[in-house]
Design a protein around this nucleic acid. Structure first.
Length: 112
DNA sequence: AGTATGACAGTCA
DNA sequence: CTGACTGCCATAC
């Protein structure tokens, strides 16, 4: 029966696979899911991820490494705090060395 | 069924 | 460099 996972369920699985101290972008997840243009839908999935506390949504930022979704973490520096807790430096709501912490599911999970 | 929204991405002026 | 628009996909009403 309808065992086919919805779009955001797939997003959840990918986000859950994000290693500690790593971050990824909405577009990267979208590309991994095969819908490179559904980056907005990925953000939508994250919006619904509030129903799932197992989703490290704080590791998902936009393509610029900006913590665009921090506003959804309670409107406080929770997202920034979580990332810094993982060794990621944040500057002006932006991940420093974003390219260094960037975790590309298309590459890291290409063998999965 | 159609409209509106969204934590994006990319392009143009 | 900054600002604004469009495109594309999925969900909610």
């Amino acid at each position: 029966m309808g065992v086919e996972k919805t779009f955001f369920e797939r997003v959840y699985e990918v986000v859950r696979k994000i290693p500690f101290g790593r971050v990824t972008s909405y577009g990267a997840i979208a590309q991994y899911l095969g819908t490179s243009a559904s980056a907005r839908s990925v953000g939508w999935a994250m919006n619904a991820s509030h129903n799932d506390d197992t989703i490290p949504a704080h590791r998902v930022v936009n393509r610029y490494g900006l913590l665009t979704g921090k506003h959804h973490f309670g409107g406080s520096n929770i997202m920034k705090n979580l990332l810094e807790n993982e060794g990621i430096k944040i500057n002006e709501n932006q991940v420093k060395n974003f390219n260094h912490h960037f975790w590309n599911p298309n590459i890291e999970l290409e063998s999965l």
